[in-house]
Design a protein around this nucleic acid. Structure first.
Length: 491
RNA sequence: GGUCCCUUCGUCUAGCGGUUAGGACACCGGCCUCUCACGUCGGUAACACGGGUUCGAUUCCCGUAGGGACCA
């Protein structure tokens, strides 16, 4: 009879927690996989356990080394460091074969020579007759299978009783053994089937908690049967609800970016990704923002919800903006540099570029209006670029009416040596007053002239960041632009 | 088709028999203000449905519906 899976880890506190993340390297690191990895990681850290990374690449036709490298890279970027591995299943084939031989030797498995065609035919017949479509057990007790003949290996499943386990997230799970057919554990070509390799590895690696997507619940029964046949202790199981897209379907490419890598490229922070992914299906009261340390401290499997969560990019964006704001400017400056360089402006620290102190000041001034590192880089680029182009909305602010104040500002600034906010503010206020305008009516065109956008930090901060020379040349260029535009219009 | 899983605002969720059903994102409005943000104050918005159990169900049980997964 199947034994009952033990209670939670509290039952035997001496147990050293060992978990694993076991991706198949058939693509980049998916958001859903990343979340599974995260939960394994923080669970291990919370319990002072060991986190193993295992690459399930036994399906050579679909696995690629690039994918494996990309996954490893993505995990490293998220800061989900592992303690053992990466272990590649493709290098452990002898273990799987040995396990199969053992099962064969003890009569827990048998060789099957049914061909795929025969199987298909019998399956269809069974379906027609309303019988279950699983394997019919034809080779189960056959004595005439030549020992040397090529054959697949099937597990001899219990026909009575039921298999059960206590899922740490979903609760008690039961399946009648009669519903589980004699599944293949080794293909005719000698390669192991997923159930077998996973089971062997989990057992040999002494995994205590299998934390994975709930699409694996049906597999779990087979794995438990296998584990029992191998006389291995059962780990605890925790199945996480899948992440869905807005249409409630399983999250996939048609819902937008699904790979961790693409969020990295879009200027998202690992801290925000981890925070968001953790809150998808897990919560700790009303808290929304977590540092990694807090996640580790507060994470409990019992607090994971049972229902699937829909991925919401807007909340991720908000969290990213939040973590960006909280970050020390020096750190943010370092992170934004590669994004800045990608815009093609002179490098920070180069003779024609600005220095690092400047970058930190600029980052500080812009951090409250940047939600991603890409946005940050885009708003910083105008300070560094030789030439700017005006966004349409900004260009509309450069009108004939403001040439007076603009020219006046240029004249006043050219006579100043100090263009820092305390010196600039009275000057612009004075000019506004002189022309009977509000400060905003003067500030907006200057903003447009300086950065080419209608949005920026406070105008005095922008001028200080821009520097006297560049401020002057940009205002003069704007003046020329208005003049040229006026000419074209009148002709 | 079979088996299994899931169901509180649009979305993420809190709730664990008695609550004006709480928070967050998004949205709307006020304040702040040189723009946009940030911040802040306020607002709209949910217990899928039907039966039970109970003095009392969002909460427990059973169905139905819907969604999902797995096997084919």
């Amino acid at each position: 009879m199947p034994e009952k899976n033990g209670a939670g880890p509290e039952k035997n506190g001496a147990e050293k927690v060992r978990v694993r993340f076991a991706p198949s390297p058939t693509g980049s690191l998916h958001l859903g996989s990343a979340r599974t990895a995260l939960f394994n990681h923080i669970f291990a850290r919370h319990n002072g356990g060991v986190f193993v990374l295992r690459i399930e690449d036994t399906d050579l036709s679909r696995s690629t080394e690039d994918s494996a490298a990309g996954i490893v890279d993505g995990l490293a970027w998220l800061g989900l460091d592992w303690d053992e591995g990466p272990v590649y299943q493709s290098r452990r084939m002898d273990h799987y074969r040995a396990a199969v031989e053992d099962l064969l030797g003890r009569g827990r498995a048998y060789r099957c020579v049914c061909t795929p065609e025969e199987l298909k035919q019998r399956r269809e017949e069974a379906k027609k007759d309303g019988r279950p479509p699983g394997y019919d057990g034809r080779c189960r007790d056959r004595k005439d299978v030549p020992s040397g003949a090529p054959a697949a290996v099937r597990f001899r499943t219990e026909t009575e009783g039921e298999t059960r386990f206590e899922d740490l997230v979903k609760g008690p799970q039961t399946k009648r053994n009669a519903e589980i057919d004699d599944f293949v554990i080794q293909r005719t070509d000698g390669t192991p089937i997923f159930y077998l390799s996973v089971t062997v590895d989990d057992a040999e690696m002494a995994i205590t908690h299998v934390i994975r997507g709930d699409d694996h619940i049906p597999n779990t029964f087979k794995q438990i049967l296998l584990l029992q046949a191998m006389d291995s202790p059962l780990p605890h199981f925790a199945h996480l609800p899948l992440i869905h897209g807005l249409d409630k379907g399983r999250l996939s490419k048609r819902h937008g970016a699904t790979s961790i890598q693409s969020y990295r490229e879009q200027g998202y922070l690992p801290a925000a990704m981890n925070n968001y992914l953790a809150r998808l299906g897990w919560s700790a009261g009303d808290q929304e923002v977590f540092t990694r340390e807090e996640l580790v401290e507060k994470f409990r499997l019992g607090d994971v919800g049972k229902s699937p969560a829909i991925f919401n990019p807007e909340k991720l964006l908000w969290l990213n903006a939040h973590h960006l704001r909280e970050m020390p400017v020096a750190e943010m400056a370092a992170l934004v540099r590669p994004f800045l360089e990608a815009t093609g402006v002179p490098r920070i620290g180069s003779p024609e570029g600005r220095d690092e102190k400047w970058l930190e000041r600029a980052v500080d001034a812009h951090k409250e209006r940047s939600r991603t590192l890409v946005e940050m880089a885009e708003s910083l680029a105008p300070y560094l670029a030789d030439e700017i182009t005006y966004e349409p909305a900004a260009e509309r602010m450069l009108t004939e009416e403001i040439t007076g104040p603009l020219a006046e500002a240029a004249a006043r600034i050219s006579g100043m040596t100090d263009t820092r906010p305390p010196a600039m503010e009275p000057v612009l206020r004075e000019i506004a007053k002189q022309y009977g305008m509000k400060l905003g009516q003067v500030a907006q065109p200057i903003r447009a002239a300086l950065v080419g956008k209608k949005v920026s930090p406070g105008i005095f901060d922008v001028i200080a960041l821009m520097g006297r020379e560049k401020t002057l040349s940009r205002i003069r260029r704007a003046l020329e632009h208005v003049r040229a535009a006026g000419k074209t219009k009148s002709e």
